[in-house]
Structures are given as C-alpha cells and as structure tokens.
Amino acid sequence: MTRLLATLTLAWLAAMPATALAGGHAPHQPDETGAPLAAPAGAAAQRPEWVERRLAALRPERPREYLELGEEIAEQADNPSMRTLARTLFVLAYETSKTAPDGRAAQPAGSSGAAAEGDLRVSVCLALAALTDREHERTWLRAIAASLGWKAGRADGGARRATAAIDPAALDLSNALSLIRIGEGRQAARLLDKPEVAQLLLRTERLLSPAGLTGGEARVRRLMAEWPNCPECRNRRFVRNAEGVRLCPKCGGRPGPRLLQQELLYQLRLESSILQGVQKSWVAQSIVDGGAPLRDLDPDELAKTYSVDPTRTVWRDGAWHEPAAGTRRGAGAAGSR
C-alpha cells in the first residue's frame, strides 16, 4: 500500500505543477501542490481503534468535537494520512459550525490564547497553521484568523509578513546563470554540481518558461555544456592574426550563448524569485509572479483549499458520508478521504 501511495503521489504531482503555476500560485514554492493527498482506503489500517471510534461518534450538531479530535490526532500524527485526517477534521469543524445551533461554542475551561476569542473559526485557522510547514500557507491562515478577531502575540498587523529566509543555494544558482551567460560554463558547472543548487534549479525550472513548462533545467545545462568557454579565444575575446588584433570570430568579443531577450527575461524572473526581489513596476511584477492573484481571507475557502467536501460530515465504514446518506447502511458513494 505504501508503494501504491508513492506511485499515486508521483503521478498526481507530475500532473499538478503546470496547472498550479498557471493558476497563479506563488512561484518558488518547495511544494507545488496546493491540496492534501486523498488518502486511499488502505490508510484505514493505520488508524488506531480509538480514532475510528471517535470518528464514528462525530455529529455535525457538535462542531467543537471535530476540532478537539483533530487536535488530538495532530499531536500524535506521524504520517501524512493522519495529518490529512486532522486537516479534514479542522475544516469540517468550521463547516459544521456554520449550521450548528451554537457555532460559537463556549470555550473549554482553562483555555487561553486564540481560543479565548471564543470563535471556533479562529481556532480552526490556527490549528491548520500549526500543521503546515509552508510559510506562505501559515501566513495566510494566520491572516484569516486575525481578520476574524484573533490578536497575534506580536504586532504584525498591517505590516508585510516577515520575509522567509532566502534559500542558501539561491546565490549560487543566480551566479551560475550569470557565468553561463558570459560563457564561463566550467565555472558554472562547479556551482551546479552542488546538490542543493541542482535541486533548487529543478524546483524552480518552470519559471524559465512563460507557460510554466518543464525543460528549463535541461536548457540551462545544455547552454552550460555548449559554452565551457570559447573554443577559439578561450574567453580572451580576441585573436591575433596577420592583420593584428581582431575580435574573436567565434564569440564576437563577448563569449557566451546568444539569448533572446525573452529568455533572458525569464532567467531574471527566476533569479528575482529565488533572491526575493521586490519589483517596482506592475509589468515586472507580472513577469515575476505570472499575475498571481491576491489570496483572500475568506474562511469559506478552507474547504476548497484542503479538498474537503463540506457536505460529508459523518464518518462511516472508513469514509465520510453525507449525514442523510450516512444513516442508511451502504447508501451513497463513499468518499475516499
């Protein structure tokens, strides 16, 4: 089952990135996917008995129980399917709170921090934020929580979020691109031979094409191989003959590949992205981020973001069902979450 999970994961990842990038997700995300994996039915074997029991007891009239169970699972989650389950529970806590008789359940005794706000939606956002390791996603969830009234421990209202640390390999990759452009392929190769630099290029190669397609990394390596240095002048830029000093006939006095302006533009886009440049014009910004839309602060987005069906809130036979369908044994298609 683990091998099947890995295979399905790879297939899904291969299909996802182009559409994800075209859909305006922020470039240079370590993980291109925007949604959790659908846990195959076989993952049920990994769930402890107490989890199954508690899942089965959940009812949409009591939204806080979804949240509490999710928090308990998140504390102990040691594999992706359990983390996915925790996320699903958090989202369902929010969705069920919208229709429950008392959506803003009183806080449990002794609670503090975000729960002290008395708003389950805030708790859901913060719980999801704690579960993710993606900075951008965490910022988004915390911003939603703040818009719902949560007061962050440190003043970050209105200010741009703290810039994430620059990937240490970013400078080497950026330098390598420059070296390739000036025909110093050998020097560039020393940088690209570093595993972290090669990985960074692989992760960000889609920025090298306007349509977000793959192949950028191969192109860079090809350029590098074609220009270790100028075979005619060894990058001296000139040759000496009977007529005296002349510009090198091979490189024309400027070693390096002949790039179209558009290709240079997309190389710069990649460099700007990995170095976290701040653009000063709308057109430059559009080129760098492909016109990525501003993510909104609507908690109603949670279900869509985490691929949770808000209508399926009852657990039965290892899957989520709609409440009406869940009461009839064997009725309705089982969602495999």
């Binding site: 620059i166 970013a170 400078l171 950026s174 330098n175 302006q261 558009q262 240079l264 533009l265 710069l268 886009r269 460099e271 700007s272 170095l275 976290q276 440049g277 701040v278 653009q279 000063k280 014009s281 709308w282 057109v283 430059a284 559009s286 080129i287 760098v288």
Partner: peptide
C-alpha cells in the same frame, strides 16, 4: 553579494520589462 545581485536583477528586469510584450501594463 545577495543584496547587490538582487538589486541588479530588479533593475535589469524592470528595464527589460519595458521592452516586453507586457509593457502595455505600465
């Protein structure tokens, strides 16, 4: 070095962007 590279990339990107098909955005 990072700051210098970033600043140069920003500058060049802004200059080339004005010559790109997207220049009308400005």
């Amino acid at each position: 070095e990072i700051a210098a590279r970033r600043a140069l990339v920003e500058r060049l990107l802004g200059m080339l962007a004005r010559g790109s098909p997207e220049a009308r955005f400005e």
